[in-house]
Structures are given as structure tokens and as C-alpha cells.
Amino acid sequence: MSTALCMCLGHNNKTTLGDGERVLKRRTAMSMVLAYPVLGLSATDLWGRVPRDTVSAALEAAMPPMENPEDPGFDVFERLSQIVCLNPSLDKTTAARIFGLIKVEPWGLHHVGAVYGKLLAHLSEDGTPRPLSDLIDEGHLSDGEAWFVSHLLTTWYLGIYYHESQPEPVRVSFETSLMWAALDGYLDPPGFSGAQPGDWTAPPPAALALSGSGDNAESGTE
């Protein structure tokens, strides 16, 4: 079995099949539902939300110092990624893969240092960084720097790095790609399932919490 599959199985339930291959399973939907009241969110927030405490955590963590803007370290890149994605718990392995690819781009480290420098230059009054979309809207980033922010966001969400220095794109993550996290666990990536037969006949549990409210009320079909 390859390293990649072993990594995958490391956080999944395991079921033995025939020749010993593993069933890929993941249980996230229920854990999200259980976490729901803890997050202090109203039901109507679900489909339109980014958890507010997650956003806050992404912005409130400490900013590592950057000694040389032309040669920023991994800690700077990781922190920058957290702010780009407004997510404080990005996968470290994926971050290392992306950083490795960016370092060989002719503009890579320069952009990391430049954008991080802009964050440091435009901190909030309480000393925390501000969302990059705000800095871009206010014109603090150049077009190239704004593009670099979108490049990072694209890579983290799709799990694919579109690489200028290589002939082909590179897969950097699969099940940890943030597009899946955006679904609040109601749908797992292809090949993963925490379901039992027939679980899919009803709306996902998270959607049940929305009954009669939220975007579904727009449909006028009920």
C-alpha cells in the first residue's frame, strides 16, 4: 500500500475487504451537527456562513516576524495562508507542498514576502491582521500581489497547484482541499464515505436544522 493511502487511512475508520485493501470512510457530518450549538450559530447562518469564531481565530493568532522579505520562511508562508483562507487550521503537509512549489517560481518568495509585508503594514488598531480582501479593496496591494492572493486561495480550495515552472499542474491535497470543508461535512470527497446504506435518501442532517428557513425558503416549492 502506498504512502498516500496510508496517510489517508490514518484518520479514517478501517474496514477490511477481501485482499486486505481498506474501505475509505470518514465521519464528519455528524460531528459538524454536534458542534453546531457549540459554535453559537443560528440555523439561518448555515448555508451562508463561515464560522465566525474560525474567522476570528485566523486573524487573532500571532504574526511571526519576517526578517528578510525576499526570503520568508515557512512559518511566514503558513501564517499568510491562514489569513488568505481565513482558516487557522490548515493542513501542515499541504502547506509544505505548496510552499515547496512556490519557492521554485521566479516570483514566488518575493510575492510571499511582499503580501505578508502589506499585512504587517496595515494591521488593525488592536494589532491583528485584516482580511486581505479588505486590503485589496482599499488598493493596498498591487495587481500582481492581488493575483498571488487568488493563486493561493485557488490552490488551497482546489487542491491543485497550477505551476508556472512545470509543464503540468500538481496535486497538493485531495480530501483536505478546502472546497470540501466548505460543505460543512454533508458531502465527502469521492472515495470517502461515512454513510450507511440509504443515508442519502434524506436531506443531510445539517440541512434538517434549516427546515423552513434559510435559502431553501426561496424555492417556493414546499
Partner: peptide, 21 residues
């Protein structure tokens, strides 16, 4: 997600909402 990234290239809050919907 690919489509939503074109609409919201810098804003993960709007991006997540679009992907979910």
C-alpha cells in the same frame, strides 16, 4: 469551486457561501 473562485478570487467568506449554494 472553480467557477466561484472566478467570482470571488480574494474573499473566502463569499467563496464558501457560493460553493455551498
Amino acid at each position: 469551486a472553480t467557477q466561484a473562485l472566478k467570482t470571488h478570487p480574494h474573499d473566502p467568506v463569499a467563496l464558501g457561501k457560493e460553493i455551498r449554494k
